[in-house]
Amino acid sequence: MSELMELYQEVILDHGRRPRNFGPLEGATHHARGYNPLCGDNFTMHIALDGDTISDVRFEGEGCAISTASASLLTERLKGAHVDVVEPLFTAVHELVTGGEPSEDVELDKLEIFVGVGNFPMRVKCATLPWHTLRAALKGDEEATTE
């Protein structure tokens, strides 16, 4: 597979075109906006936290295929998850997209498809912006940037 097609795998193109969990979230307890001033990617994450469980997570905004797919797959993955999985999962995704070796203790599953980003240093921030935004929301911040 060419580096390009490894980056733009069918699943990424699909989620980029038809993002899941896209739109506002009624009853959300946490929100944050993430913005990458370099390319204009701009997402808002909405989270409904029920105790320590992410009972729902949705997002709005616009960005490139990589960032949109990252946000979409993140919401699929975290819906119903315990908040404690967020940090290890983020660390593993970050390792993966920067060309490192993610810890074996974390099940990346579908998120594995972001491995192709490792060959495109200029695109790392696209993949990580939704994660930074989610983490900012959970921390109670309203803004996240990739700077």
Binding site: S2, L4, R17, C39, G40, C64, A65, I66, F120, M122
Partner: peptide, 30 residues
């Protein structure tokens, strides 16, 4: 339609074609 400028830029770069994508330091125009 359907292709974000950033994705276009990456595709073109892999074909050896260097263009600029972004707001071109002219956000009010965007």
């Amino acid at each position: 339609d359907g292709a974000h400028p950033h994705d276009i830029g990456t595709f073109l770069d892999m074909a050896g074609v260097a263009i600029r994508t972004g707001h071109h330091c002219a956000q009010p125009v965007m």
